[in-house]
C-alpha cells in the first residue's frame, strides 16, 4: 500500500470542499432540507453521518474485494445496499446494549440514514476511484465531514431565517431551496482549485 501525502490531501480537500456531497454532487438532499431546522439536530445528524459513512467505507472495501474475486462486480449496488442496511442495524443494536449514551446521542438519525443515497454513493465512489483501504476510509470520513459542514451551515442560516420577514409564499421549504442554491453556487467556487 503506497501512501502519498499530497494524494491524501487532494482526497481530503476534494471530499470536503470541491466535491462536497450535498452542494456539488447533490446527494443526501433529503436530510439536508429535513434536519437543518436547528443547529443542535443538524450537528447530531452530521455526527451520525460521519459515523455511518466511515464504517461503510471500511466494510464495503472488503465486500468489493469479494465481488472482484468472484467477478460479479455488476452486483455492486445491491450488495452495498444490503451490507450497509444490515451494518447500521447491527451497530444500532450494539450501541443500544453497550453504549446507551452514544445511542441516545445519535438517536433517531442513525436509522434515518441507513439507506441514504449519500452513504451508498460513498461506497460506489470508492470503487470507481479505485482507492485503497486507507484512501477509501479517509475519503468516506471527509466526505461525511463535508456533508456535516453543509448541514451545519444550512442550519445556522435557517435559524436566522426564522426571525426574518420572509414573504408569505416563500416561507418554509421554498426559501430553503433558494438558500441551498446560493450555498451551492458558493461551493462551486472551489471547483477551479488544482493541486
Amino acid at each position: 500500500m503506497k501512501l502519498d501525502f499530497s494524494t491524501l490531501m487532494t482526497i481530503i480537500i476534494g471530499a470536503i470542499f470541491i466535491n462536497n456531497f450535498v452542494l456539488s454532487r447533490f446527494l443526501g438532499i433529503c436530510p439536508f432540507v429535513g434536519v437543518s431546522r436547528s443547529l443542535e439536530s443538524s450537528f447530531g445528524m452530521g455526527m451520525a453521518v460521519i459515523f455511518v459513512m466511515t464504517l461503510t467505507g471500511f466494510v464495503t472495501y472488503f465486500v468489493n474485494l469479494i465481488l472482484v474475486i468472484t467477478r460479479v462486480e455488476y452486483l455492486q449496488m445491491m450488495c452495498f445496499i444490503i451490507v450497509i442496511a444490515a451494518l447500521v442495524q447491527f451497530v444500532e443494536m450494539f450501541l443500544q446494549k453497550f453504549n446507551p449514551t452514544l445511542y441516545s446521542a445519535l438517536g433517531i438519525y442513525l436509522p434515518l440514514i441507513t439507506t441514504n443515497c449519500a452513504v451508498l454513493a460513498v461506497a460506489l465512489l470508492n470503487v470507481k476511484e479505485g482507492y485503497n483501504l486507507i484512501e477509501a476510509v479517509l475519503f468516506s470520513f471527509f466526505a461525511a465531514a463535508g456533508f456535516a459542514l453543509a448541514l451545519v451551515i444550512m442550519a445556522g442560516i435557517r435559524e436566522r431565517l426564522e426571525i426574518t420577514d420572509v414573504p408569505r409564499t416563500m416561507q418554509g421549504v421554498p426559501i430553503t431551496f433558494i438558500i441551498a442554491a446560493i450555498l451551492s453556487l458558493a461551493f462551486m467556487g472551489f471547483s477551479g482549485m488544482k493541486f
Binding site: C79, I82, V83, A85
Partner: peptide, 16 residues
Amino acid sequence: VMGGLGLVSGGLLAFA
C-alpha cells in the same frame, strides 16, 4: 454472493 451476503447479514442481525 448475493445469497451469502444476505444470509450472513440476516444471521448477524438475528444473532445481535
